[in-house]
Design a protein around this nucleic acid. Structure first.
Length: 416
RNA sequence: GUGAGCGUAGUUCAGUUGGUUAGAACAUCAGAUUGUGGCUCUGAGGGUCGGGGGUUCGAAUCCCCUCGCUCACCCCA
């Protein structure tokens, strides 16, 4: 074998494609129910979009982007996340001016240069939603409900919804100072990684998996205790509304998210069935992002969810995706003239939306029968010397083995 | 970038203290009185033992290097 797929990529083979079709159809269905419209943006963007939108301090931009110079010397990046490109299109196309509220979703590949492991790829597929133009708490709630509905319809119920608020930028800056103050006394107990983050990205210390770090941050001041009155109320309203709707969630002060643009609500869907990469999806508000990208101030909230991870969890739960569709009729031809007749008859069925197949390997009668059986067809239609003489083929029902003579142009009338 | 585990037919795996032509199951293909599938039976094809080097009379097996895969850290979907 000379060629391999690039590290971190995957082939979706015919036997597993039905899972993907299923999940994709659930997403189309649910986004329709919530009245979201699909938007498709390019596979690559100019690199600056992500630097500006996502933030140069984030790991995604700092070390995980697929960036290259094209032949014209422009710096191009394969999209590592969905929100910034959608915002760019939103501004560039001018659709923001057509109405005040936009509910958009996407389903597309994302690229991050990372070391692959369970549930983590260099190219993965993400489904995400964005609501633009409103800061109503119902926009946060609606996205959470929509993601939950997709998961539920894929047979996934064993996940947790974790919520947090990281407040407005000035509230966050204020809190970071408080957090730093607290961590200062424990600085030498922190892990090496966390020590580095103390200056550059203090909040991230909160979601470190190191046990030592956890112990320290367990009793650290919580951001939700240091929000302004308005932000605090907004967060409480989101939590209360989810509760009122019967959605179980828990507040987790460690959900700070790795992208710079988030404000106020952040959330994650986590499942223990995923192994170490336990996030099924996540998102949050980004009320300052559009302005940052050159637009007028515009509220926004969004989330992204990995299709591969949805499939992993659904499978662990024993969910059965739709069965692949088998052809209805298999044409068995025993000589060259019969093949011509069979092929015409097959074409006629196909034109009438009836799936069928023929032997393309010039196999023996028995081999063709075996093939038909393997394909799980309902009928075989047999044409040989005798049938050509009579101008009638044999239509055999594979489940009860009964067979009748049917003229070449009447196959359709005699099935189902 | 750091660490651990694993690489033997299409697939899942055996392979005894290094010892003849590297095995099984499943899958594939072909037969079982000549034009009928599933079940059964018989048989066939298919492997540079990830690659390279070394030790040895002899290496799938021991040593070194390398590549790949998997999992974990980091981070995220």
């Amino acid at each position: 074998m000379n060629f391999r797929k690039p590290k971190g990529t995957k082939d979706i083979l015919p036997k597993e494609i039905s899972k993907w079709h299923f999940v994709e159809s659930v997403i189309r269905e649910v986004t329709g129910l919530f009245n979201f419209s699909e938007i498709r943006t390019p596979t690559f963007e100019y690199t600056d979009l992500f630097k500006r939108g996502v933030g140069t301090e984030t790991d995604i931009v700092g070390k995980e982007m697929y960036t290259f110079l094209d032949k014209g010397g422009d710096s191009i990046t394969l999209k590592p996340e969905g929100t910034a490109p959608v915002m760019r299109a939103f501004l560039e196309s001018g659709i923001y001016g057509e109405q005040n509220l936009h509910k958009l979703y996407y389903l597309t590949s994302m690229f991050r240069y990372e070391k692959p492991q369970a549930g983590r790829y260099r190219e993965h597929t993400q489904f995400g939603g964005e609501i633009l133009g409103s800061d109503s708490i119902y926009t946060d709630v609606e996205l959470i409900l929509m993601a939950k509905e997709v998961y539920n319809r894929c047979g996934i119920s064993n996940f947790k919804i974790k919520l947090n608020s990281i407040g407005k930028p000035d509230e966050r800056r204020n809190y970071i100072e408080i957090l730093k103050e607290y961590l200062k006394e424990h600085l030498d107990e922190l892990s090496e990684e966390s020590k580095k983050r103390y200056e550059t990205n203090t909040l991230r210390i909160l979601d470190s998996k190191e046990l030592g770090d956890r112990k320290i941050t367990d009793s650290a001041p919580k951001i939700t205790d240091h929000l302004g009155i308005e932000s605090k109320k907004r967060f409480d309203d989101v939590v209360n509304e989810l509760t009122r709707l019967g959605i179980e969630s828990e507040i987790d002060f460690r959900i700070v998210r790795g992208l710079d643009y988030y404000t106020d609500t952040t959330f994650e869907f986590v499942s223990s069935d995923l192994g170490s990469q336990d996030a099924l999806g996540g998102g949050g508000r980004y009320d300052g992002l559009i302005e940052q990208l050159g637009g007028k101030p515009c509220a926004g909230v969004g989330f992204g969810s990995g299709i591969e991870r949805i499939i992993i969890v659904a499978e662990k739960n024993g969910f059965t995706f739709g069965m692949p569709k088998n052809p209805i009729v298999y044409f068995i031809a025993l000589n060259d003239d019969a093949k011509k007749i069979a092929y015409s008859a097959a074409l006629s069925l196909r034109n009438n939306n009836i799936a069928c197949d023929t032997d393309l390997l010039n196999r023996s009668f028995k081999a063709q029968m075996r093939d038909a059986n393997k394909l799980g067809v309902k009928y075989v239609y047999i044409i040989g010397d005798d049938e050509i003489k009579k101008q009638k083929g044999i239509l055999k029902n594979m489940s009860d083995s009964s067979q009748i003579e049917v003229s070449f142009d009447k196959v359709r009338e005699n099935i189902l």
